[in-house]
Design a protein around this nucleic acid. Structure first.
Lengths: 199, 199
DNA sequence: GTTGAACCTGGTCAAGTGTCCAAGTCAAGA
DNA sequence: TCTTGACTTGGACACTTGACCAGGTTCAAC
């Protein structure tokens, strides 16, 4: 086995763990499955991590990092406010649709974290982070489209984040692209209805 | 041990399983934890169920049955369409807030089911059932409020169910009642904006 | 009363799981 | 060169978990 620093090994194990989770689910991500995926002996695990929970902690931080960044608002075809909003939403949705398993892992990890006293706080912090991202994203859209929101942005962010989370969850269950798209369009229509020209 | 029919025993075990899941999470609901909760010997389990998955199947059907029925639209204080909508939503939300652990179990079970080939179909069917319930609920509101929806009800149902699922999930993470309530009010405002008088 | 099906029980098995450790290997600084 | 600390390795331990079964008990129907 090539010699690596403990930090490198940790990174290697976290990546392997994420791969296992995406493929087989969080429940199947045992220490043995993870080291097998990473191609290292079992002993390595507890040399790098004090416990499995410590790895889970690192995995959660890791997967949150790679969470979908809101798509840059580039929609060359339709530059009306409504067109920009609709284009942005569908671009984001395409990313969700492209990696369903990754979405599932995110939800599974969130729930796992909520049950583990030590990890609940991490989940909370991460969700707060998402809220901020979403708020920034809304502000960016407003700027690009040359409009302002007639509803407080924090409210709009919570509403939107909730809706996207819910639609994703529901789509993961029935994979109904037509209905999901229709709901997304309705969201775009709603967002357009809470805009006013200029700032 | 008092003698009971296998059907009774099954019911007893399902109830015990649900109790364990609510208290400790789906992952901790082992056969031993379940029979301990039910106060019966371990052997009973595999006398009543061919396998643990068979019990899980029964649990899912069971917990879905007790899922929140849409609140009857009784809002004596404000009988305007908007008042009725808002009252209904908050009444529903109060039910969610009253049993957070039960909500979590529902989400955990859904995910567990999606990973288990045999159970995925059950989840799909149940979600379809929820959609129908939500549609009926929307129609009921329209009738009581004397309005009609200007957006197709199936779209409105998917949108609403997604939003409520997402808001619930997010609230389970940060338990922020103020923000949740604000988002809920915004949803009420949106719903009001897609109504037209009479039928 | 006999019988047979339904129900109960305690122990046991094999597989899997997180954790630990003693002995080995390596590379770089004293 | 020697030493020292960091990394590697294979095996082992203690425990959990789902599944199974042989033998016992009960009760209603005949």
């Amino acid at each position: 086995m090539t010699r690596l620093s403990a930090d490198m090994r940790r990174e290697q194990l976290v990546d392997a763990a994420i791969r296992v989770m995406i493929r087989d689910g969080v429940g199947k991500a045992t220490t043995r499955a993870i080291v097998a995926e990473a191609g290292v002996p079992l002993g390595v695990f507890h040399y790098c991590f004090r416990s499995k929970e410590e790895l889970l902690h690192a995995v959660i931080e890791g997967i949150m990092q790679r969470a979908l960044p809101p798509t840059t608002t580039a929609t060359p075809d339709d530059r009306s406010p409504r067109g920009i909003i609709r284009g942005t939403l569908h671009a984001y949705w395409d990313q969700v649709r492209a990696r369903p398993d990754e979405q599932m892992v995110t939800y599974e990890l969130t729930q796992y974290a909520l049950r583990q006293p030590g990890l609940a706080e991490v989940a909370r912090r991460q969700y707060q982070h998402y809220l901020t991202l979403y708020s920034d994203h809304l502000e960016a859209i407003a700027q690009v489209a040359g409009i302002r929101w007639t509803v407080p942005v924090p409210v709009l962010a919570r509403y939107g984040l909730g809706l996207m989370d819910g639609l994703t969850l529901n789509w993961l269950i029935d994979r109904d692209d037509v209905q999901a798209s229709a709901a997304l369009d309705e969201y775009a229509a709603y967002l357009s209805s809470v805009t006013a020209p200029g700032v």
